[in-house]
Design a protein around this nucleic acid. Structure first.
Ligand code: MN
Ligand code: MN
Ligand code: ZN
Ligand code: ZN
Lengths: 147, 147
DNA sequence: ATGCATTTGCGAACCATTCTCATTAATAAG
DNA sequence: CTTATTAATGAGAATGGTTCGCAAATGCAT
């Protein structure tokens, strides 16, 4: 059981949630995910450990984790909700519209401007969501295309 | 038949597409949309004009329009594809976290940086989603809030 | 007008997500 | 360690957006 997983379940407990075997396993899978898996993908990983855990439970548990604030539910593309532990440093995302791949980035300049824009509008910036959608540039290594 | 709709169909024709009655009607509905309707919503508006047009055709036609570049298909949130004519002026949103009010804004500087960041990551920016969340600054003239 | 490839309408299929409900299991109380 | 309470689970059905397959209809070049 990873360290981050323990944090997840302890936060659940503090939120008055019951700690169950499925939740421990799901916490483990979510905590060790370094990508941005959707729920069906998390379910696959969970089922590889305990096939008796249902998809419904994965959906419900992810929601519970999100409520603790330790997991974010992104709606990047394609109608799926992708999950990410909140533990890492702030960053935004660029979605490859051809492959669906998620690229993480951080632009201090954009971060700064967001706060500036908010202030000009009379607000103190408290949060933001920035998602870029892009098509891969056909730089070098070009592949043959349809004539 | 609106002017923007004519542009849509003429671009379709130039792309080697056949101009059909359903496509004319769908072009009209899409062109005059000032919101960001999803396909089922476009279908509702189309069906109000000609109920014989099928949902499948609306999906297919929207895809054709998107291929001309005059319509954008954003897969923003909630698993739906939202449509927007490329003609109208772009803007982003700031949400007042105290009142829920939506403030529209546009920052050319941020727009520019987004494209720049995308390019540095090896992508051509095709769309983006930026939402700021802020708390009103306690300056002067404060407005009454919800009781 | 004729021929043929493109489009269409319809229903089935798909996929992510939610819901229902009977059963199971975690927790608190005794 | 029981037992009672009640939340959590699993299975499957339901939902909603989107795509597919195919026969029939239609646009368009000739
Ligand atoms: Mn990330
Ligand atoms: Mn808008
Ligand atoms: Zn950011
Ligand atoms: Zn913008």
């Amino acid at each position: 059981m990873s360290d981050a997983a323990e944090v997840l379940i302890s936060h659940c407990r503090q939120a008055g949630q019951r700690i169950t075997a499925p939740r421990r396993i799901i916490a483990d899978v979510v905590a060790k995910a370094d990508d941005h898996p959707d729920v069906p993908e998390i379910y696959r990983r969970v089922a590889a450990i305990d096939p008796s855990i249902s998809l419904s439970t994965v959906y419900r548990t992810v929601k519970v984790f999100a409520a603790t604030g330790l997991v974010e539910r992104h709606s990047f593309a394609g109608g799926r909700v992708q999950i990410e532990p909140t533990s890492q440093a702030h960053h935004d995302h660029l979605i490859d519209i051809e492959s669906g791949a998620v690229v993480e980035f951080r632009s201090d300049e954009i971060e700064r401007l967001q706060a500036l824009v908010a202030r000009e509008l009379g607000f103190e910036l408290t949060a933001h969501r920035l998602v870029l959608y892009g098509r891969p540039l056909a730089r070098k290594a070009r592949r043959a295309r349809k004539p």
